[in-house]
Structures are given as C-alpha cells and as structure tokens.
Amino acid sequence: MIDLELLSRYGPRMLDGLVVTLTIVGLAIVIGAVLSAPLTAMRLSANPVVNGIAYGYTTFFRGTPLLAQTFLVYYGAGQFRGAFESVGLWWFFRDAFNCIVFTFALNTAAYQAEILRGAVRSVARGQWEAASALGVSRAVTTWKVILPQAFIVALRPYGNEIILMIKGSAIASVVTIFDVMGVTRLAYARSFNFEVYIWAAVLYLAIVETLRRVWDVLERRLTRHLRPANA
C-alpha cells in the first residue's frame, strides 16, 4: 500500500518540513504572546484613543485572511526595499521565513489579545476590590491574583489558537517555505503520486491530536484545586 521508494526519498524531507512547521508555529506563538500583553492592556484601558488603536489592530488582523496578510508582508516588503536597506532591516524582510514568522506573530497576537482580554474580564470584580482593600498594589494584584485565575480560563482557547496556528502555517508553503505542506507539494509535483497528501494529512492529524491530548492533561492538572476531593 505504501510506496516505499517514495517514502525513502521524501520521508526524511517531510521530517525536515515538520521541524520547519513547528519552528514557525513555536516562534509565532511566543512572539505573539509577548505582543499580546500590551495589546490586552490597551484593550482594557479606559482611554478611548488607546483602546481604539488596539481595537483597530485586533479587528484588522482577525477580520482578514492570513494568506492575504502574508502576501502584504512578503511581496509588499520588496516594494520598500530602499527604505528597509537605509534602516538596515532589509536582511530581515528579504527572507521568506522571517516574513512568515513576522506575519503569523502579528496575526496570533491579535487573537491572543482577545483571549487574554476575555479571560481577565472573566475574573470577578471582587478580586480587584479585595486586593485593593488589602492595600496590595495594582501591579502585584495583576500578577499574583488576576492573571493566575485568568490563565486557567484562557487555557483552552490558547490551545485552540495553537492548533489554528499549526493548521494556518500550511500557508507558508505558498511563499516558498518547505514546511510539511511545502515538502508535500514538492513531492507531489515531482512524483504525481497522490499518496504524499495522505502522509501529510496523517502527520498534521498526529501533531494536532498530540497537542490536544497534552492540553487535556495540562488542564486537568492545573484545575485540580477547583474540583472537590475524590470527584
């Protein structure tokens, strides 16, 4: 059933592609998480201008296709080559891999900011008030009281966002990156053997299912103090 010759030729390259996919997703998620913190703070701000800027950012990135965003950065950057060269940033945007990580990070930052905002909002107001009644500073309250509770609420949506990012990362193949999808497309273009798409499907399903299982364990462990004993 499995074409062994094809597997020996493209199997190792698929695994290289897997590393590329995971690197892109890992970098984008981490950078996006860092960016999402100030965005969330802005979204929770009472200042309408600050709030409006963050709202505009999240609406733009959540309301438009990732593929079109990628094209804007990847092809659009080339148009400003002179400007990027003069500020010494051209080396960064010249590389498709960097463009992809850049775009994906900006994109996931918008989604993560929405998740975090919802989670912080879900923590009862009384928690803020109790902390301030005890004379705890706002920064300490945020770190020690609000965020630990918010992260538990945000855990599941975060897991879903990572899964969406893994699936979305297949888009990288459209701009010449050899991630799992990119290697698969190359293998198909050369061999015209449809089987390679099935391998890719199995590989993606394995990644997503593994992540889901890990997330289930993580969630069960992190919420064990919320369940009654012996339940």
């Binding site: 893994i166 699936k167 297949a170 888009i171 198909y188 449809f194 798409y197 499907a201 993606y204 997503v208």
Partner: peptide, 22 residues
C-alpha cells in the same frame, strides 16, 4: 470531526482538488 478539524484547510483543499481529479 476529528479529521476535518485537524487538517489544515489548505491541505483539505488540495486533497479534494487533486484527489477528486484522480
């Protein structure tokens, strides 16, 4: 549900497009 929520949309599209052709 597990399969079609787990696959990248782009891959599903290619599978249908090329697979359908074959």
């Amino acid at each position: 549900t597990t399969v079609f929520r787990g696959l990248p949309e782009l891959l599903t599209l290619f599978i249908i497009y090329y697979g359908g052709q074959v």
